[in-house]
């Protein structure tokens, strides 16, 4: 498996302006438009929202990891969304979310999908990393922080 940082790109990092979690998920998922990650971003947005309705992906500590595994995704990838103000996400600890890591995987990429989710969760367990990522001014800096971990 690749280094997990290789699953993202500078173009998949975005400052989120939306106020609620579903809009935020859609806003972040749209970074894949025009890329080779997903052939149908509308379908991805629909799947992410549907999944979010079943059970929140806000895992606490200001983090959410919305994810979906659908046929329209050609290449497993993740996007990073930063919300300085914080978004209400029905998180486990009730706190607003500042960092959204959105994972999109193909239907047959099951093992890679779980592995990537696991790596992301492992990284974000470190409070210092979380603070550095949320506080970073530029996408390049976020990638650098994640890469140095």
């Amino acid at each position: 498996m690749k280094n997990f940082i290789e699953y993202t790109d500078i173009h998949y990092i975005k400052d989120i302006t939306s106020k609620n979690k579903f809009d935020a998920i859609e806003e972040l998922a749209r970074v894949f438009e025009g890329s080779d990650v997903c052939s149908d971003v509308d379908e991805l947005v629909r799947a992410l929202k549907e999944r979010e309705e079943i059970m929140t992906t806000g895992i606490g500590f200001g983090i959410a990891v919305p994810h979906a595994k659908i046929r329209a995704v050609n290449k497993i990838a993740f996007a990073i969304g930063i919300s300085r103000k914080g978004i209400e996400f029905d998180s486990i600890d009730g706190n607003p979310v500042n960092l959204i890591i959105l994972v999109a995987a193909g239907e047959r990429q099951h093992k890679e999908y779980l592995k990537l989710l696991s790596q992301i969760m492992g990284l974000l367990r470190d409070e210092n990393i979380r603070k550095q990522v949320i506080g970073a001014k530029k996408p390049e800096k976020i990638l650098e922080i994640m890469n140095n971990k």
């Binding site: 999944r51 779980l114 989710l117 969760m121």
Partner: peptide, 18 residues
């Protein structure tokens, strides 16, 4: 098995994800 290795995934996943 993969999900069980990382405790945080336990709170993140549902049957549909797996």
């Amino acid at each position: 098995r993969q999900a069980l290795i990382n405790n945080e995934l336990v709170d993140l996943l549902i049957a549909g994800d797996l």
